[in-house]
Simulated scan of single mutants.
Amino acid sequence: MIDKSKIAIITTVASFKFYNKTATLFPVGIDKIVIDGTTGMYGLKSIDFMFEKLKNKQYDWIIMADEDVFFYDSDLVFDLIQYMKSNNLDICGVRDGGEIQHRLHNPEAINTFFSILNFKKISDKYNYRSILDCQKYIPKLYANKEYSALKYSYDLQSLKEPYYCFYFWAHLNKFKFLYLDTINPVGNDMIGNVILSPTGEKIAFHSWYARTYEVYEDQTIRLNSFLKDFNIKDALINWREVQVFKKPFFNWKKRAKIFAVKLFKNK
């Protein structure tokens, strides 16, 4: 049996307004955690911050899910974790190359919109410096692997996302991966994708572009249509049940670093 007290779902939020709606569909009975991504905290920095904040907590499993993930049946994540546990699997998610028609990048990396980690096991080996060293083309990652079943194009040398190194590092450290199948396009929508369980059940729909909500009109209209499809109206989450992590002065430190690099180059 899965112990829900040892599972958390964590979201690096770009749009709190959108999260306030879609998180009503998130799995119940587990901790909800938010990392404030509105000041530029995302990707690898967010992953590292997650390990920093949660390393000494009670969690065995972490579900990473963006706020533009709409769960069809959130209980299926518990079946998925049980499947991973029973089969000695450590990381799952959808490939960032070959499975979604607008993501033509590296098939060995997972896109972080949805990923489940055996957090307890991975955190024992987690080393940020070692992970950074893995953001490069590593031939052994692709040796003896077959990609002919992938639906769309991909690029084995792609380093499109700075967080790829986390997954490359995990491969090199012998963590076992489960790549989830996905459906894309979905109906008339060419962008979104449906995340499937190992037995083919629909876990969730990923709309993409939550960060554009109420920023760009076309995407706002599109995203509102999904809220309607999932019968999310004025439903709001209970923020007393959500832990929110912020990194003080993160944006200022980021800007200062960029300024220092530019200043050094101009000397």
Rank of each mutant, 00 (worst) to 15 (best):
F78R: 08
R211L: 12
S153W: 05
S15G: 05
E99H: 07
L76D: 05
K253E: 07
Q157R: 14
S197T: 08
Q58D: 10
I63M: 13
E214N: 12
L180P: 12
I195S: 10
F259W: 11
G98M: 09
H171N: 04
E67C: 00
A65Y: 08
Y209K: 14
A8F: 06
E201M: 04
F78W: 12
A210W: 02
V244S: 01
I221H: 05
R240L: 07
Y137V: 08
V28K: 14
I116W: 03
S207G: 07
V28L: 10
I110R: 10
V94F: 01
R240Q: 13
S158W: 03
D73S: 13
K32A: 07
L227G: 08
L223H: 03
V77A: 05
K160I: 01
M50E: 12
A170S: 13
N173S: 11
L89T: 06
V34P: 07
V77F: 12
M64A: 05
F51M: 10
D90V: 02
N266G: 10
D234V: 08
V194G: 10
K202L: 04
I183S: 06
D124G: 05
K176F: 00
T182A: 14
L44D: 14
Y213V: 00
D229N: 09
V242W: 05
F16Y: 12
V69C: 11
Y72K: 13
I221F: 07
N127F: 01
I237H: 02
A210T: 01
L196N: 02
E108K: 13
K121Q: 05
I191F: 13
D36Q: 09
C134Y: 06
N87H: 13
E201K: 15
M1R: 15
C92Q: 04
F119L: 02
A8L: 00
L104M: 08
D124K: 14
F226N: 02
K140R: 11
K176Y: 04
V13L: 02
S46K: 11
T212G: 02
K253L: 04
G40Y: 12
I7D: 04
Q135W: 15
D48E: 15
I2V: 11
Y167D: 01
G98S: 05
N88I: 01
E52N: 15
L236H: 15
N188Y: 07
K121C: 02
N88K: 14
K120P: 00
K17A: 03
N173F: 07
Y213S: 03
I30W: 12
Q58M: 04
K32E: 08
W169C: 08
G37D: 09
T220D: 01
F249V: 00
E108S: 07
P162W: 14
M84R: 11
T11R: 04
K136P: 01
A260R: 15
I237R: 10
F71I: 07
T11F: 01
P248L: 02
A149K: 15
L159K: 14
L117Q: 06
F113P: 10
F49D: 08
K55E: 13
